[in-house]
């Protein structure tokens, strides 16, 4: 299908984008790589009146060593993150997950900011930043603010970003080892039926893909680990308190089961990687 008509504006700066967003935040959408938004527009499931293309805003595509953390520009494409030497050295989980998103063509265009701001619980990168306890940096008419990843994902396609804000940077504390990512899908190009991002470097953190209406942490597993449980015991609590959906590709019951198996595998793998 062809998208419904819209007004197109190309932003030359964050200020441009924020200015246009402020004019009519509810019917204005930001377009970065477009790989979350355009598919919805083609099916006419999204019909924004104004599309603000931020894809060329300079200075927002970078992966930078910032001392205790890595700073990633919101417009960094998945492929660039995947092969970034800084990311591979200091946040290898994120580099790895970026290489798992969609397919090569999608990774060449899609951006980390676009993917996170879309807030799809079936996406891989939100789980990675949640497991890494990342911080989102948003700019808006009220200035800049930082949002912890654990506060960022609010609901289905819903984040803590206000309609007039723009995600500009992701800050990820360094976690060079002790991580794992498990993705279960039927075809390589598909969304995960269930995915697991685990980081054992520091306080153990486990985040799940597609185990609820938003990206979630496996709190039960994290508690069990903190209490000294082994991987299998902790994994048994993977879906505690969670309400995964039943859909065409999997029942909720199967998702719960998969979460148990995949969390266990991720914990074993991450522990082995930690050495």
């Amino acid at each position: 299908m062809i998208p419904a008509s819209f007004e197109y504006r190309r932003a030359g700066s964050v200020e441009d984008a924020l200015g246009w967003l402020a004019e009519d935040p509810d019917s204005t959408k930001l377009l970065a790589g477009g790989h979350s938004l355009l598919p919805l527009m083609k099916l006419r499931l999204a019909t924004p009146g104004v599309l603000v293309d931020v894809g060329r805003v300079p200075g927002l595509s970078y992966v930078r060593d910032a001392g205790d953390h890595v700073a990633i520009g919101a417009l960094t494409r998945h492929r660039d993150l995947e092969i970034s030497e800084v990311a591979r050295a200091f946040v290898p989980l994120l580099a790895h997950v970026a290489g798992q998103v969609g397919d090569p063509q999608v990774r060449h265009r899609g951006t980390i900011g676009g993917s996170l701001a879309h807030g799809d619980p079936a996406s891989d990168l939100p789980a990675a930043v949640l497991a890494l306890d990342a911080t989102m940096v948003a700019d808006g008419p009220r200035g800049r603010r930082e949002i912890a990843a654990s506060d960022f994902f609010r609901g289905f396609l819903e984040t803590a970003l206000e309609p007039d804000e723009m995600l500009t940077e992701i800050r990820v504390r360094k976690a060079p080892s002790g991580w794992a990512f498990q993705k279960f899908n039927r075809r390589a190009q598909d969304w995960a039926i269930v995915g697991v991002a685990a980081v054992l470097d520091g306080d153990p953190r486990v985040a799940l893909v597609n185990m609820g209406s938003t990206t979630v942490r496996a709190r039960g597993t994290e508690e069990a680990l903190a209490a000294g449980a082994d991987a299998a015991e902790a994994a048994d609590r993977a879906s505690e308190g969670l309400e995964p959906s039943s859909d065409l590709h999997a029942s909720a019951e199967y998702r719960r089961h998969l979460a148990t198996v995949l969390v266990r595998r991720a914990l074993v793998e991450a522990a082995a990687a930690r050495g």
């Binding site: 299908m1 197109y8 190309r10 377009l31 477009g34 790989h35 355009l38 598919p39 083609k42 099916l43 293309d53 894809g55 492929r79 969609g102 397919d103 090569p104 063509q105 999608v106 060449h108 265009r109 190009q189």
Partner: peptide, 26 residues
């Protein structure tokens, strides 16, 4: 119409992209 099949793949600055999921404007 869902960025799935890849029949529309072209190179943009030497990298493969699905031309059904880019605006001409982009």
């Amino acid at each position: 119409d869902t960025t799935s099949c890849g029949a529309c793949t072209v190179l943009l600055d030497g990298e493969s992209v699905k031309s059904c999921t880019l605006l001409a404007a982009q």
